[in-house]
Amino acid sequence: MLDDLALNGEAEEYSYGFLDEQTKRMIRRAILKAVSIPGYQVPFGDREIPLPPGWGTGGIQVTASIIGKTDCLKVIDQGADDTTNAVSIRRFFARVARVNTTESTGEATIVQSRHRIPERPLQDDQILVMQVPQPEPLRRLVTSEVETRKLHAFARYGLMQVRLYEDIARYGNIVMSHDYPVRVHDRYLASPSPVPKFDNPKLHRSRALTIFGAGRERRIYAIPPFTDVRSIDFDDHPFERQKWQSCCARCGAEDSYLDEMLLDDAGNTQFVCSDTSYCNDRLSEGASR
């Protein structure tokens, strides 16, 4: 096709956003179907890209297919911009898509993330791209794809309820602290990706579109803005987020997810915000404990 021939018209040796135009079109179509069927995992033809599968290739392919010259990209891993994988992905896009990058959640038009959803609520003009290792929430219960597909087709999610209830009966708690399954738009059971369950409520009626990319497993799914996202729970055991006794040792935040940092060889620790942008914003606004 003509536009594919124009690939190398750009000065760089690779096409814009790394992926060729045919691949982007295929992923773009999958994204539109994913948005039209919230929480349903759309199969897509995953491509190999220069980062290894399992390291965010699904998210990278989604970002590569949506990103344009006017975008501003933020990439985080574990909530932080300066973790090595985040740096590596951010550099990749700075090179192949020639976009501006940022570490501030507020400035970004696209946020690609692994394992966290930013603390600062995302806005209408922002897109959150989540990297997903295992998109199938039922996989831990049923190994066969044929079977899980049937369960989704008829919304038969009793198995998951039973599993969670068994936890309560056996341990008094649901033994699942991250990648805690959600029900999207009252229909599909979906994985929020391995974010701590602390982050689950942020998906509920978020102002921003969230797109999930699982490269190795070849699935894309999405949660449009203002969509109901309910974490699975029971009347007598309502869903609970993680809570901390202490607040952030840097900015004093009491409402953010905290990392435990080792201070010395004696094993003394301190808690600080996992979301570095949120912590820095609070500090520059003059908050501290």
Partner: peptide, 16 residues
């Protein structure tokens, strides 16, 4: 890829 991703930081999930 997936085997080696175990070398990536997982401290958020570990914390949880």
């Amino acid at each position: 890829g997936l085997v080696q991703h175990l070398k990536l930081p997982h401290y958020v999930d570990f914390q949880a």
